[in-house]
Simulated assay, not measured.
Amino acid sequence: MTDVVVAVEQPNGVKQLLQRDASVAFLAGGLAGAISRTVVSPFERVKILLQVQSSSESYGGGVTSAVRQIYQEEGVKGLFRGNGLNCIRVFPYSAVQFLVYEGCKKYMFHVDDRNTDQRLSTAQRLFGGALCGGASVFATYPLDLVRTRLAIQTANLRKLQKAKANSIAKPPGVWQVMRATYLQEGGIRGLYRGVWPTNLGVVPYVALNFCVYEQLREFVPTNGDTGSSSMYMLAIGAISGGVAQTATYPFDLLRRRFQVLAMGQSELGFKYSGVIDALITIGKTEGVRGYYRGLTANLFKVIPSTAVSWLVYELARDWLRKL
């Protein structure tokens, strides 16, 4: 009789464990994304403005100069414009990434990260990272598009009206922008404008980020104190984010430009018929440096953001597992 009970209860126990692991990965990943992006929100907005500005615009004094200019014209709110929506987007975006990656480990490659003797190969890490990157993009892309447009609204209005941002009428909010995009740009297709250039950048970026981090994670001492382990994780998270973003940056620039392409091509100063045309046009009109416009601002954002994200994820995951 006892054997029968064990046989019946075991599948439920396994199911509950798997559900718990999935919930832990989702919640820890979401917290990691929201906290890390809030920390670097001012640099995120500067990066977007540098990416979509024409060569004649005024954000040319460097990252710190651009941050100072936005603060002077729009105040503290300007530095964090779009961050609320960014957190709403990043929570599921980051959560889906870690959930899918952990799922790949367990169900595709049969590796348990609690077992230090089990490790993914480089190819498996790249594949898992690519898969979770693509899944997270499709899950949250409309919010990313709207956030990008919100981030440049006041800057674009300032240019057009030759006025300071505090004298500009309040721009439309999240739902107004989303509704207008849906109605005026082809419905769902409009909300996913630029999704393919985005995947070209995000998928290899996430793949490299996860691969480099996990490769370096093997060198972190397991018998150190919590403080030193946290410093190690911050360091390798920063390295993985910096390497991955620099390698894939031109596609991130394309993503932003395609997202705002319909907002006013003559004012923004560029017009592309597709990804290949965009790459050729940028090379001809802006040179090689054009592919990396805003890279410095992006690294100011990505390096600390990725470092904080990995640290928060590891700490939150371990804490949630103990509950």
Rank of each mutant, 00 (worst) to 15 (best):
A34H: 00
V243H: 07
R45C: 04
G33M: 00
A307K: 08
R147L: 10
I239Q: 08
A155K: 03
G283P: 00
L18K: 02
A244P: 13
S229E: 11
Y249K: 04
G78N: 12
M233K: 12
E214W: 02
T296H: 04
A135V: 14
H110V: 13
K284G: 02
N86C: 13
Y107W: 03
W319T: 13
Q161W: 02
S65M: 03
Q259D: 12
T246Q: 06
Q53A: 03
R149M: 09
L268H: 06
Y205I: 09
F219S: 15
T38Y: 08
F251D: 06
L299M: 13
P221H: 09
Y313P: 00
A130F: 10
A66E: 06
P42C: 07
R45T: 02
V146I: 15
F109K: 00
A262D: 10
N12Q: 07
V52R: 01
I280L: 02
S230W: 01
V4Y: 09
T148E: 05
R289K: 14
G201S: 09
R255Q: 15
L31R: 00
V146P: 11
A235R: 09
M178D: 06
V14S: 02
M231L: 14
V202F: 10
R37C: 12
T226Q: 10
A135S: 11
V96M: 11
Q245P: 00
D3F: 14
V40A: 04
K15E: 05
I35G: 05
R68P: 04
E44H: 03
G241R: 05
Y232L: 08
G287Q: 04
Q19S: 08
E102D: 11
R289I: 12
R119D: 10
F251M: 15
L27S: 01
G187S: 05
A278I: 15
V220K: 10
E218M: 14
Y249C: 02
D252F: 05
M1E: 14
M108Y: 05
Y101Q: 06
W319V: 10
V100A: 09
N115V: 07
E267D: 14
A28V: 00
L79D: 14
L279E: 02
L183G: 02
K15I: 09
E102A: 13
V8A: 15
E218N: 12
A123Q: 11
W196G: 11
L253H: 06
N223V: 15
R125I: 01
A165V: 11
I70E: 11
N12L: 12
S121N: 07
